Simulated assay, not measured.
Amino acid sequence: MFATIVVLAAVAVMIALGLWQRDRGQEKEALIARFARNVDAPQLTLARGTDLSLNQLRPVRLDCEDAATPDLAGAGKYGFRVIAQCRRSSLGEPIAVQLGTQARPGALPAWKGGLVTGYLSTAPDSRSLLRLLSDHRPAPAMVVADPPLAGLSANPGPDLSEIPNNHRSYMVQWFAFAAIALIIYGVALRARWRKA
Rank of each mutant, 00 (worst) to 15 (best):
L133I: 04
G74Q: 07
L46K: 05
R24Y: 04
A47L: 12
R192Y: 08
P156M: 01
R48M: 09
H136D: 13
S53M: 03
R24E: 12
Y78L: 14
L8S: 09
R190H: 09
A154F: 11
R192T: 01
I183P: 01
K112Q: 11
K195L: 14
F175C: 04
T122I: 07
G79N: 06
V187W: 04
R48V: 15
R192N: 04
R58Y: 08
M14N: 07
V116M: 04
K195G: 14
N55T: 02
R34F: 14
K112W: 08
S169K: 07
R87V: 10
I180D: 07
T45V: 13
R190N: 10
V187Q: 05
V143E: 00
I180A: 12
T101L: 13
A67K: 04
L130F: 14
R87F: 11
M171A: 15
S121E: 03
L108E: 06
E65G: 09
S134R: 05
A179W: 03
L108N: 05
L91G: 10
I183Q: 00
D63T: 08
I183Y: 02
K77F: 14
N166V: 15
I180P: 11
V7Y: 10
G18C: 11
P148V: 01
P138H: 07
D51T: 09
P59A: 01
A96K: 03
I183S: 01
P70D: 10
A107W: 00
P42E: 12
A145V: 01
N55W: 07
V39S: 02
A145E: 07
A30T: 02
A41P: 04
G74A: 08
Y170N: 02
L130H: 05
W20T: 05
A10Q: 03
R34A: 14
V97T: 05
L8W: 13
L160Q: 10
L62Y: 06
L52P: 10
W174C: 08
A191V: 02
I83N: 02
R131D: 12
V11C: 13
P105A: 01
A68P: 15
V187M: 11
L160H: 08
S90G: 11
P94C: 03
Y170I: 00
I32M: 05
R37Y: 13
L120T: 00
K77L: 15
R88A: 15
R34Y: 12
A3G: 05
S134T: 04
Y119G: 06
A73W: 08
H136P: 12
K112I: 13
Q43K: 00
V60S: 01
A145T: 00
S134G: 12
S90F: 08
Q98S: 15
R22M: 14
V172E: 07
L133W: 00
I95E: 09
L133E: 02
R34N: 14
Q21T: 00
V187H: 03
G106M: 09
E29D: 13
P158Q: 04
Q56Y: 15
L132G: 10
D159E: 08
E65F: 15
A9L: 11
A176K: 03
S161K: 13
L99T: 00
L129C: 06
Q21S: 02
